[in-house]
């Protein structure tokens, strides 16, 4: 065997492998975001047992490494007679894990809104969910957006742990190519560029959204 050069073919292969990173991220955004909303709503529910269950869920997934969660989802499920393929195992793990973080970010921002607003809404005879939707969430969104999109970027980068169960996404492909070319600076430099190209637009979008909200906020303040 001889080592080869890191050429155009190697770079395109690396670039192509990013599609699995993108797909896995999209699954985590969609699944984790939707489930995260539910978790956040449960977390601030008026009923205590519901709150406890949601809190336990968040705590469990936030407190253990996703690497181990993934390992258990893929290999450990055999002990309960299941045998998901790598994609199913990764999709489930990333959805469940992202939901815990999204849920907690949403809840944190909601709770940062002064409690007086809840009481005021109550005085206006708004119900719990109405208050949440009409009064709290619009304000919480401003606090929620930067960490949410920050975490989305985090998800894109975290998908690299899927290489543990043999998914050849961007990071594992990089290792594969590095071991046959031994050009770590070129290989990982390219990988950094590709991740940056994936993540930066999201960060810019977040900044844009945040600025828009600020403008809206100022507008209201000036009127008042």
């Amino acid at each position: 065997m001889n080592l080869r050069e890191f050429g155009f073919g190697e770079f395109s292969f690396l670039l192509l492998s990013a599609r699995w990173t993108i797909l896995l991220s999209l699954i985590a955004f969609a699944g984790g975001g939707a489930l995260g909303l539910v978790i956040a709503a449960l977390r601030i529910s008026a009923r205590r047992p519901v709150r406890m269950i949601a809190a336990g869920y968040i705590r469990f997934f936030q407190s253990t490494p996703i690497l181990i969660q993934l390992f258990m989802a893929y290999y450990g499920t055999a002990f309960i007679g299941l045998s998901p393929d790598p994609w199913t195992a990764a999709a489930i793990t990333f959805t469940l894990n992202a939901a815990a973080f999204f849920g907690d970010i949403f809840r944190g921002s909601i709770e940062a809104i002064p409690h007086g607003q809840w009481e005021a809404a109550k005085a206006l005879s708004l119900r719990h969910l109405q208050t949440l939707r009409l009064v709290i969430l619009p304000q919480a969104l401003k606090l929620m957006l930067p960490p949410t999109v920050g975490f989305m970027v985090q998800i894109v980068k975290t998908t690299s742990v899927a290489s543990l169960i043999g998914l050849t996404e961007l990071a594992r492909t990089a290792t594969m190519i590095n071991t046959v070319t031994f050009e770590p600076m070129l290989v990982f430099g390219s990988v950094a560029l590709i991740y940056f190209a994936l993540c930066w637009p999201m960060s810019l979008l977040a900044l844009h959204l945040e600025r828009q909200l600020e403008v809206e906020g100022r507008g209201r303040a000036a009127l008042a």
């Binding site: 406890m52 269950i53 809190a55 336990g56 869920y57 469990f60 407190s63 258990m72």
Partner: peptide, 19 residues
């Protein structure tokens, strides 16, 4: 909630072990 989550973890481990 910590205890609840901890209990869930131990329980799922036991479930894995005895299935």
């Amino acid at each position: 909630t910590m205890i609840a989550a901890g209990a869930a973890m131990v329980l799922s481990t036991l479930l894995l072990a005895t299935a």
